[in-house]
Amino acid sequence: MKLQFTLNGERLELDVEPLRRLLDVVRDDLALTGTKEGCGEGECGACSVLVDGVVVNSCLVPASQVDGCEVVTIEGAGFERVRQCFLEQGAAQCGICTPGMIVMTRAWAERCRREGREPGLDDARTALAGNLCRCTGYGAILRAALDAAKERP
């Protein structure tokens, strides 16, 4: 099929199999390898990307579903603040979960801001519960997420 969508602010038109995984479109067809594959079955969150502002596991999304949508991967704009918080807290160890974590953290931080909610630790745990990390014990990641969600002074 002809797939039209916006990727990281750029309008694209591709010829793809409708059932091809969004993850493969991004990683293999478009060579954006920041999005990772940890399980291929929706369990680890390493493949998280934003579709119209909502986090999805790109390993579970067929390409046809993003037709006309706005897709943002870790290579896109708007991650600067979250990245900085992850760096400051040393929240990336091996780094394989990091792009997915950052995508999820950004979505959560934006939601907190939008809803005028005070970001809390339990809330952050729930928000990040679909993103697995085996290195950090989540301590540094949660600290980074809280930093990121707090309004800039």
Partner: peptide
Amino acid sequence: RPDGPGKVAGTTRYVAD
């Protein structure tokens, strides 16, 4: 961490990349 910037930007290349 010297490996930090590449990891948070998603530009660090793992073997599958």
